[in-house]
Design a protein around this nucleic acid. Sequence first.
DNA 1: TTTGAAAAATAATGACC
DNA 2: GGTCATTATTTTTCAAA
Lengths: 147, 147
Amino acid sequence: MDIQLDETDRRILDELTRDGRMSVRALAEVVNISRSHAYSRLERLQDLGVLEGFSAVVNPARSGLGTSAYVTLTVRQHSWRDLSERLRHVPEVKHMALVGGGDVDVILLVRTRDNEALRRVVLDVLQAIPGVLSTHTFLIFEDLSNP
Amino acid sequence: MDIQLDETDRRILDELTRDGRMSVRALAEVVNISRSHAYSRLERLQDLGVLEGFSAVVNPARSGLGTSAYVTLTVRQHSWRDLSERLRHVPEVKHMALVGGGDVDVILLVRTRDNEALRRVVLDVLQAIPGVLSTHTFLIFEDLSNP
DNA sequence: TTTGAAAAATAATGACC
DNA sequence: GGTCATTATTTTTCAAA
């Protein structure tokens, strides 16, 4: 899984993380390589699976998702494949992680319109999943992403 | 904080979340509006702060960040401003949330090169922050983002 | 690997329904 | 909001150095 990335690769990823719509021309300029080379690098990074794609950065609260929470799950059997597949179909679940190191097995980042919708997701959707023994909800008052 | 978004706005955000480098021409086509109109919508969404920008989607593991963990913090005084400002300068902290609903005050998503680097971040950086009473680390075995 | 040329596609703006 | 027209940029490929 480990891949050799040199300084140029890292700077390319940095720049594109900062501005995902930056033109290849401008990118080549700031990292001091030729345009052709920039194209090759990009293609290579995508082929390697390092650069998975590009996405809009949307403010959850301002786009109608006023409530966020971390929800932890304790599950009976660790059929992570089935569980993650099932969770992937819950649009309110924005991020899911299988974890170790405590009494908790799964941590979910959930975003909903309001608290009532969060309640429904936790009680009617998550707790209804077979194998889910218990849940705990940590309401998020404020959250920040770090580039 | 609440903003009126219609179906078209939502579809624009959906499409750009799926492909952040999609051309405005293609975007206008799939959501059935004119190009000029698409430009206006985009400008409006950015002005409203709904669309914050665009970013590359980088695979953490393949880009050299082989270890990920959720680290919870219990803090003495809730000087969230100071704390979040301080955490923002820790590059390994990718996401931070001020939460309620348990004995935990802050939840951090941390990504490092390896377990040793994670240990250093938790022990030398996070636990060294004034006001941080205790930490708990949940190692992430696998994690997925949901579009 | 770099540079330059050149065609095709796209961005961005403005005038006008 | 929408359409059309226009100009500026960018993408992408290819050949040559």
